[in-house]
Design a protein around this nucleic acid. Structure first.
Lengths: 202, 202
DNA sequence: CTTCCACCTGTCAAAGTTGGAACGTCGAGC
DNA sequence: GCTCGACGTTCCAACTTTGACAGGTGGAAG
């Protein structure tokens, strides 16, 4: 339901075609709300039908420029005001982490360190972006920066956490079914045979 | 595609019925990978058909206890080893933040502070959980703790970021179309009229 | 002995997402 | 004059997720 709001949000600032919007998703908004071309065009058609946006201009290559209608603007503000239902987010990386005990210990540690490194690279990319001179020319100025900063902090967190977690595993804080901490460099460090529930986060 | 792996992962530790698995999702795994009952039962049927799991016991109330087959175990390990495609995650909160400039300034600030408070509450819940005595009785010991720790750190980040962001907005680091920083307590602090791209993160 | 709750499964429609194919056009450069 | 890349749209099949409905059983408490 939020792709719809993302599109409306972008159209508040300036009218644009499906292609324009697609570009914005690819270069920026997509970092917090990915969307494919097929989905965007489809949603635009629906929004047009609903009357939240309308075609205000038709360009050369069959280009259709959409603009927000007053209803569309109202809907956007309503959406921003609406209370967010904070549902847990899917996180493939944490899901895997949950079951990392099934891998040999060194392999598990490596997985975590890889994550740290990936995050470090992403971090650098985002920082470079933040420090770009012409930022203000291309981006939603203020709030875009807030979101970008979140991304940067997030990457720092991922790095620190992953290294900490790797250390935990490496240090042998692994408890086998019988309870004692294991130091064995054995093949498979299958953890927690006896119980199958865990707790995590979003 | 990962619900499948989540189910397999849980079944590695002990056989269980759809109902058992549902419980685990509700109380723990669901924090990193939410799933509804209808989805779980459906997926179990499919996994059974594929031969990755099989019914090893039928209980009183039509209960079907599933266990991993060797193929299922192999698949789980394969999945853990497989490289993760780090696709950006959807984040409704950041999506809204992106467009927060459409709200009157004080309202926007309040949105951010609300987020901080929500995160603080979640943080406390997770910390309480971490410090629970009988943790090891109910949870996947080691890796579950790693994931839990991630959740805790994440909540700290959210709080700090949200307060920082609120401060940024409040401090009037808002640039109007003409470029100058705005201090006006005006009705609508519509930001960034002139440009419609932003950059964010996952 | 009845009632209620926890247990336990199944199915379905609707919506959201993914990934890809297909098709046409304008402009720049060779 | 041709080609190629960027522009620009539409459609579709497959899969995932959500939310609800529908139904049946065992045991404990009153």
């Amino acid at each position: 339901m939020s792709l719809r709001n993302a599109l409306l949000g972008l159209l508040v600032f300036r009218p644009g075609s499906g292609y324009d919007l697609l570009k914005m998703f690819d270069t920026s908004l997509g970092y917090v709300w990915p969307a494919k071309q097929s989905q965007i065009y489809g949603e635009l058609t629906k929004l047009d039908a609903t009357g939240l946006i309308k075609v205000t201009e038709e360009g050369p290559r069959g280009r259709k420029q959409y603009s927000l209608t007053p209803e569309g603007h109202a809907e956007t503000v309503r959406w921003l005001t609406e209370s967010r239902e904070s549902r847990p987010q899917r996180n493939p990386m944490l899901l895997q982490t949950f079951f990392l005990g099934l891998l040999p210990r060194e392999e598990a540690v490596q997985r975590l360190l890889d994550h740290a490194e990936t995050s470090a690279k992403e971090h650098d990319t985002l920082v470079a972006l933040r420090d770009t001179e012409d930022w203000d020319k291309d981006m939603l100025t203020v709030c875009g920066r807030l979101v970008l900063e979140h991304g940067i902090r997030q990457r720092v967190l991922e790095q620190e956490w992953a290294r900490w977690a790797a250390e935990q595993l490496r240090a042998g804080h692994v408890v086998d079914p019988d309870g004692g901490p294991t130091g064995a460099p054995g093949k498979e460090t299958d953890v927690a045979e006896s119980s199958a529930t865990g707790t995590a986060d979003a």
